[in-house]
Amino acid sequence: MPELLLLMVAIVWGTSYGLTKSAIAFTSISLFIAIRFGLTFLLLLPLVAKDFKQGKNKDWKVALPTGAILALIFFFEVYGVSQTTASNAAFLISLNVIFTALVDSLLSKNKPSQSLILLSVISTFGVLLLTYHQDLGISLNSGDLCILTAAALRALMVTMTKKLTDKKQITNTALTCIQAFVVALSAYLVGALITKAPASQIPYDREFWLITAFLVLFCTLFAFYAQNYAVRKISPTKASLLMGSEPLFGAIFSMMWLNETLTYVQWLGAAILLTSVLAASVNKPDKI
């Protein structure tokens, strides 16, 4: 179940880059993040209140640092997406697979297996081929550096979630809800105090709210609940490897809905990435 959920997360996240780029055309980055995670928090609040009444969240404070990390991820990632190409963003964010293996090795006594590290390297190579265009190179402008920072923070996020929630009394619903609250509050404060973006200028365009509804329900509410559930069941490195397949599903989405085509090199990258993800999914936990 954890592996299946993470593959479903990769599928919905594969569609998120283009949708995010469309949404921030209507408003500021900070206000968009505040709206997206504020709605997520409000949707989960009734369920979390019930859990608190039943005494299921005695260790709720462990969610606060992971929420802070998540806030940083989205500031860097959304700004990066607005400043770089989709191909660059897809490749650079996938480097979190390698970063996670390194961070997991540093923070955990259980070192990732050699087969898992090898699959992580192979999947990253597959993403490089999948996002390769002959006339485009991987540049490192401000947007690329932000995406690279977000990739490193993603690695820290999954590793710290595993470490902080291990044997703690906190439900996955409460963990997701508190994280969403921290992100929404951080985005609001950044918009109001730093960028001086007026919080009152909420967009009323139908397209913005349709995109935001999809992002809230699938790419935030479902995705982060599933991630929090799965990371507590399997290793952080394996979780990142499975979620790192999102560029593959992003390419499939582009082919189906945008009538884009892949080159032979990109097809090879897709095959390599799919093979590595399937290998990680079917191996027994004690083997990978």
Rank of each mutant, 00 (worst) to 15 (best):
residue 193 L to D: 00
residue 275 T to S: 14
residue 126 G to L: 08
residue 288 I to W: 01
residue 212 T to A: 15
residue 76 F to Y: 03
residue 101 A to C: 10
residue 49 A to W: 15
residue 252 I to N: 01
residue 90 A to S: 15
residue 276 S to Q: 06
residue 137 G to M: 07
residue 111 K to S: 13
residue 158 V to K: 02
residue 215 L to F: 13
residue 210 L to E: 09
residue 283 N to G: 02
residue 29 I to L: 11
residue 265 V to Q: 06
residue 205 D to S: 11
residue 85 T to H: 07
residue 115 S to P: 05
residue 93 I to F: 10
residue 155 A to P: 02
residue 261 T to C: 03
residue 130 L to S: 09
residue 82 S to A: 12
residue 82 S to N: 11
residue 94 S to M: 06
residue 110 N to C: 07
residue 281 S to G: 03
residue 192 A to S: 13
residue 86 A to H: 05
residue 66 T to M: 14
residue 44 L to W: 03
residue 127 V to Y: 03
residue 196 K to A: 06
residue 119 L to D: 04
residue 30 S to E: 14
residue 113 S to P: 05
residue 16 S to D: 11
residue 169 Q to D: 13
residue 254 S to V: 02
residue 169 Q to A: 12
residue 286 D to C: 03
residue 243 M to G: 06
residue 156 L to W: 04
residue 217 L to I: 13
residue 250 G to D: 05
residue 102 L to P: 08
residue 160 M to E: 04
residue 173 T to P: 00
residue 14 G to Q: 08
residue 177 C to H: 04
residue 144 D to H: 02
residue 160 M to V: 09
residue 37 F to M: 07
residue 35 I to R: 12
residue 67 G to T: 01
residue 1 M to N: 10
residue 9 V to L: 11
residue 217 L to R: 10
residue 286 D to E: 14
residue 191 G to K: 05
residue 116 L to I: 13
residue 225 Y to A: 05
residue 179 Q to M: 04
residue 179 Q to F: 03
residue 185 L to V: 14
residue 225 Y to L: 12
residue 277 V to H: 01
residue 259 N to F: 09
residue 72 L to H: 01
residue 18 G to Y: 11
residue 138 I to K: 03
residue 94 S to N: 12
residue 64 L to Y: 02
residue 114 Q to R: 14
